[in-house]
């Protein structure tokens, strides 16, 4: 075949055959080597199906005559990797959570999957991912995030935030008030529910992926916050009363927006076939926008967080690649 075509002889000389979850590669016999014609085996090739079986039979004959054949596990091979779960034994170290002494009141939430409560998933320090993150430092330390809006532009947004503040107290927003409290620290149920899992059903790799992404992004987001030193909404307009205390760091970009969008982006890259992905993105965005309702972020902070998640995605998918692969295996089983 000419340029842009392909070499037909490869298909004639070699063949792949499939049986359940195995695939076999065999050289086919040369001209004249095919001793058995389908009809000689007592089959009459009446339809396409019969023809297909006949040619597979010829391959088997060929394989018997040839010493070279390679077999491999096809598609379901990832089952074997489940063995890796053995590593989980290390979880005994949950005592380490004590390090976060300032958040001590959350210690009660240790039971993941507690019905009615949120999903906290505790992991060991993700040192491998952090190491990769810093190996790739040059690729993320200077992402083209826009500078924050001017004070005048932010001032124009204050009436919107005051309106949200008033509406948050209405009976209709009771659910949102609960969400805001739940979402103060990383809590996974908002991300797991769109995927149809509840934190107690054996999706540990998925949950670890989400926690690792949140932790990696927390660190990166802090750098960008420190770069812009943007104030919180009620520092511009003190009559705004945030529903929750202002976090002790700068406002722009919103780390809740960055982290939640990054979780959605990364999960959707790892398991693009999941029908819950669009809803996962919507929940992630709601978690981010809830911070505007709570009065601790401007809309621009949220938008910058989303943008940062997108800019950081190419680096992040390299940083958490192994965990993404384990996650996709978990869903493909």
């Amino acid at each position: 075949m000419g340029e842009g075509g392909f070499d037909l002889s490869i298909l004639q000389d070699w063949a792949l055959s499939v049986r359940a979850d195995t695939i076999e590669l065999r050289p086919t016999p040369g001209e004249g080597d095919v001793a058995l014609h389908p009809s000689q085996q007592g089959w009459s090739p009446t339809g396409a199906g019969a023809q297909m079986m006949a040619s597979v039979s010829a391959l088997s004959v060929a394989a018997a005559a040839s010493g070279l054949s390679f077999q491999g596990v096809l598609n379901r091979g990832n089952r074997g990797n489940r063995g890796n779960r053995g590593n989980r034994g290390n979880r005994g170290n949950r005592g380490n959570r004590g390090n976060r002494g300032n958040r001590g009141n959350r210690g009660n939430r240790g039971n993941r999957g507690d019905a009615g409560d949120g999903v906290d998933f505790v992991i060991l320090a993700p040192w491998e991912e952090r190491e990769k993150l810093h190996d790739l430092r040059a690729d993320w330390v200077n992402l083209p995030v826009s500078p924050p809006p001017t004070r005048n532009a932010l001032r124009a947004e204050i009436p919107v935030l005051l309106d949200l503040q008033a509406r948050l107290q209405s009976p209709a927003e009771e659910g949102r008030r609960e969400e805001i409290l739940n979402e103060r620290d990383l809590e996974l149920s908002g991300y797991l529910t769109p995927l149809g899992i509840n934190g107690a059903s054996g999706f540990d790799e998925t949950m670890r992926l989400m926690v690792v992404v949140a932790q990696i992004c927390e660190e990166v987001g802090m750098r960008y916050k420190d770069r812009w030193r943007a104030i919180r909404p009620n520092m511009l307009e003190p009559c705004l009363r945030p529903f929750i205390p202002n976090p002790a760091h700068y406002s722009y970009p919103s780390n809740h927006a960055f982290q939640s969008m990054a979780i959605a982006q990364i999960f959707a890259r790892a398991v693009p076939e999941h029908p819950g992905n669009p809803e996962l993105f919507r929940r992630a965005m709601r978690i981010a926008h809830n911070r505007e309702w709570a009065g601790v972020h401007f809309r621009a902070d949220t938008q910058a967080g989303f943008h940062l998640a997108q800019l950081f995605l190419p680096v992040l998918e390299r940083v958490v690649e192994d965990q993404m692969i384990r996650t996709s295996e978990e869903w493909r089983g």
């Binding site: 499939v18 695939i23 297909m52 597979v56 088997s60």
Partner: peptide
């Protein structure tokens, strides 16, 4: 668990 064999193409 015994499946028939077929040609990949």
């Amino acid at each position: 668990g015994s499946y028939p064999t077929y040609h990949a193409l």
